[in-house]
């Protein structure tokens, strides 16, 4: 009887944190960016769906997430209540910054959302199709200036891949990195650069209003509602998805890892999360387990290759 009593207290004590774990989510970016929004949306959904008790978001901005991941890996080791939001940009940033801490030093749990890239020109431009743009690029790579996000980020990688697929030396592309989506978009709208690259969602309302012309998208299949071919259909074998993921701390036991993965799966299927995806226009690309690990490894090696081609990684 006494044993039973003790055992039930122990079981209760063990079960309690599992029933509603507290989480601290690190968004390795400044407030307002995609990772921050992902983290804060997760916070709302985890709390509203009662998957977790108290959830906090911590911002550690900078350097494509490499500062955040370095801090996360060293400080949260073995902590089953710590989560890190990241994504494809982090893969490139880790390589360009020669970050000593990589995604191998954390425990990737699942891919959550994804966005495809779009290539646009200002409506006043004489470039009508992706073919026109590539022809110009072949003629004089320096004369085609590309406006997009940070150097070595998804946008830059897409331009590098496209140049390579078109048979242009990727080190010769004239890529102009802007800080933040708004600044790049303004430069494209103001015809300061020849063409622009960013996620489709960022351009969507401008394309619909007729101020930007959509030339191509980077998805596998045509994007619903987008009046443009994929790069693949246009004869360039390039598919790029800017995905976002969530990772747990390094040094977790298999059970702890399973518990976190289960919570994230519940999150991904929850109504609050699905609704949030809709209002924010994010595509659900949930992928977990070994399938995700394989995909991640593939993305990392492909990115390493293209960054070497562009000349950002030596």
């Amino acid at each position: 009887m006494k044993h039973f009593f003790l055992a039930s207290i122990l079981a209760g004590a063990l079960a309690l944190p599992a029933a509603a774990a507290d989480y601290t989510i690190m968004a390795p970016a400044a407030p307002g960016g995609g990772w921050d929004q992902t983290a804060r949306t997760m916070q709302t959904a985890l709390q509203q769906e009662k998957i977790a008790g108290n959830v906090q978001v911590v911002n550690v901005p900078g350097a494509g997430g490499t500062i955040g991941i370095a801090q996360f890996a060293s400080q949260q080791k073995g902590n089953p209540n710590a989560l890190l939001v990241g994504g494809y940009v982090m893969v490139g940033a880790i390589l360009t910054n020669k970050s000593p801490v990589t995604l191998k030093d954390v425990t990737p749990i699942a891919r959550l959302t994804g966005e495809y890239e779009a290539i646009v020109v200002p409506a006043s431009s004489d470039i009508k199709t992706i073919g026109d743009l590539v022809a110009k690029l072949k003629e004089n790579p320096g004369a085609v200036s590309w406006g997009g996000g940070s150097a070595g980020g998804t946008d830059h990688i897409l331009v590098g891949l496209l140049a390579k697929a078109a048979g242009v030396d990727p080190t010769k592309i004239n890529y102009i990195a802007f800080s933040g989506g708004g600044e790049a978009l303004a430069a494209i709208l103001g015809s300061q650069v020849t063409a622009g690259v960013s996620s489709y969602g960022e351009f969507e309302s401008q394309i619909k209003a007729g101020t930007l012309r959509l030339l191509a998208v980077s998805s596998d299949k045509k994007i619903e509602g987008a009046d443009a071919p994929t790069l693949k259909e246009s004869g360039f074998d390039v598919v790029v998805q800017n995905w976002r993921m969530v990772a747990a701390a390094p040094g977790l036991s298999d059970e702890q890892k399973k518990a976190v993965a289960a919570d994230i799966e519940k999150l991904a299927q929850s109504k609050t999360w699905q609704e949030a995806l809709k209002t924010k226009g994010w595509t659900d690309t949930y992928l977990a387990g070994s399938a995700f690990d394989e995909q991640l490894a593939k993305d990392i090696s492909a990115t390493d290759l293209v960054l070497k081609d562009i000349g950002l990684v030596k």
């Binding site: 350097a63 500062i67 360009t96 910054n97 150097a151 990195a177």
Partner: peptide, 21 residues
């Protein structure tokens, strides 16, 4: 920190916290 236009580190001496300037 990281040079915005080329992604190269400047004066960060290998300290990750300095990468963002």
């Amino acid at each position: 920190g990281i040079d915005q236009l080329t992604g190269q580190n400047r004066l960060s001496f290998g300290i990750p916290d300095l990468l963002d300037g």
